[in-house]
């Protein structure tokens, strides 16, 4: 049996491709990896399962609202969003095309979230971020915490440009 391409679930997924993250508006909620599942019941009720990037991310309520509004506008009457915490969100779910979009937007994409070593690792040991403006690796981290929970603040020694980096978690 071949699944119909225009199944209600596919239609919902296509709608979600157009729902952008409010803080990183070049990535859709699907590209960011926060949409974990979509279920459309026989009665047409839509349930979207999302996972937060950071537990205190203030954008999550806006994202839930945007998801519901977009799917309702797409002709689905009953839409609900539920939250899951497992598996925990990781930047490894951001696909290569999405990483290119981040870079073009001026945000260095996350490095692989190598979860090695002990629980307490002082001084950042991993390779420096690549400057999204001049592509130099001659960069330094100014602060592990930036304008949003998901970003660090970096500085490029080659082009003297400050930039943000998506933190790998």
């Amino acid at each position: 049996m071949v699944a119909r391409l225009d199944s209600p679930r596919d239609a919902v997924l296509a709608i979600l491709d157009g729902v952008m993250d409010p803080e990183v508006p070049v990535l859709s909620v699907r590209e960011l990896g926060i949409v974990r599942d979509v279920f459309v019941g026989d009665d047409g009720a839509v349930t979207v399962t999302v996972t937060p990037t950071y537990s205190g991310c203030p954008a999550i309520r806006v994202i839930e609202h945007d998801i519901i509004a977009a799917i309702e506008a797409g002709g689905f009457a009953r839409v609900s969003v539920q939250t899951t915490y497992a598996p925990a969100w990781t930047t490894d779910w951001i696909a290569p095309e999405a990483r290119e979009k981040l870079k073009a937007y001026g945000i260095a994409p996350p490095s692989p979230s190598l979860d090695s070593g002990g629980l307490v690792q002082l001084m950042r040991a991993r390779p420096s971020a690549q400057c999204p403006y001049c592509s130099s690796y001659e960069t330094e981290v100014r602060s592990e915490f930036g304008s949003t929970a998901c970003k660090a603040v970096c500085w490029c020694r080659a082009c003297l440009q400050p930039f943000e980096e998506f933190k790998a978690i």
């Binding site: 950071y54 537990s55 598996p87 925990a88 690792q121 002082l122 592990e144 933190k167 978690i169």
Partner: peptide
């Protein structure tokens, strides 16, 4: 408890950043 395990696994990723920050300042 699966729910506690899920919250803890998520929190652990965040607190590893926290302890690097506070630990660096200790030095």
């Amino acid at each position: 408890n699966a729910e506690i395990a899920a919250i803890a696994a998520k929190s652990l990723k965040e607190v590893k950043y926290h302890v690097r920050h506070s630990g660096d300042w200790m030095l």
